[in-house]
Design a protein around this nucleic acid. Structure first.
Lengths: 183, 183
DNA sequence: AATGGGTGAGACATCATTGTCTCATTCGGG
DNA sequence: CCCGAATGAGACAATGATGTCTCACCCATT
């Protein structure tokens, strides 16, 4: 009887990922509940998006933890992270394009923390001689986000196979398109 | 006196790139004209977005032409293209996220044509032994779009320098983050 | 079986945006 | 210099989404 808030959030994430301008009514239907109930759990659309933001940050952080970024070669850590982040890729793509989140001054500082951890991984890779130093950690971080979003979108659209998600992103980000002697 | 339609479109592109949900009133103000005039030139918001789509496709195609994709090494051609596409990167990022464009069946077939030309470049690079073959042309095309969008956003936000736009994208896409013997 | 909390459906007012219209003004070509 | 076309500002109705409320109903607990 009682609605599972977390389940509603995940359904909302799917609906909004598919169409960012979905109405509260569409979100409610996607979650299999009534619009009134949706409003009972989230004061409004704003609150819903904020809750999704928190969920996304939380899962992103969980993926970072599970990937153990500090252990082993930075490239391997990056591969682990991409594998862990795959289930949330669609939600993250939605949140990133929801640029109104980043307009106000009340920007969730969780993003900065996540950016910091990802940047730190790239920096570690550079300091240990594994990554090239002419591409800044900030850019590598942005690029990783962009590739994750692109891959999530391509998989959702059936242009690439879901099973290749981790491989495609990691190989492109680490090795690039150029054929090199190693590999 | 008479409004320059092309100039209005470019102003609209800037406004909508910055905030995808900008109202017609905001777009009009951004273009320095009245809302009534905006409606006189574009029958409605739908028509405006369609016009922007056509503009984006046209400029994208112009960038492809200017880059002479068939000439020389594929990597060099890609670099030229990235340089040429830089001025339209923001508009393209907006159009790609405006996924409602791709819901209806009346999807502008210009996108397929552009995708084809970009994919062909990657395929040529693979056939000539310049690019690795374990990453599909379709994925490399998606990745290129994603990186262009990420870079445009990062530059707009001041996280990376505008002058590095071409270099960052090309180096990452071609060579990847890993340090390799060549380079 | 009785009870109470949570829910779905719908009604309702409110609000923002859109699209259309009018009218005064202004700019440019003849 | 004058006339006409295009513009800006504002009024207006229509539309769609939002947020709130009521009420009947269902299910779980007691």
């Amino acid at each position: 009887m009682t609605v599972d808030r977390d389940q509603v959030l995940r359904a909302a994430a799917v609906a909004l990922t598919r169409k960012a301008t979905s109405t509260m009514d569409e979100v409610a239907k996607a979650a299999g509940i009534g619009r009134a109930t949706l409003h009972r759990h989230f004061a409004g659309r704003e609150a819903l998006v904020r809750a999704l933001e928190n969920l996304g940050i939380q899962e992103f952080e969980a993926a970072l933890d599970a990937a153990r970024l500090d252990e082993g070669p930075a490239g391997d850590a990056l591969r682990r992270f991409i594998g862990e982040v795959e289930p949330v890729a669609g939600l993250l793509a939605f949140l990133v394009t929801e640029n109104q989140l980043f307009e106000g001054e009340e920007m969730n500082d969780g993003w900065a923390r996540l950016d910091g951890r990802v940047s730190a991984l790239f920096r570690r890779g550079q300091e240990q001689g594994e990554f090239r130093i002419d591409l800044t950690p900030a850019w590598l971080t942005e690029a990783l986000y962009g590739l994750i979003g692109s891959a999530a979108w391509a998989v959702q659209d059936g242009r690439v196979a879901a099973k290749d998600f981790q491989y495609m992103i990691a190989e492109l980000l680490l090795g690039g398109a150029r054929r090199s002697v190693e590999q």
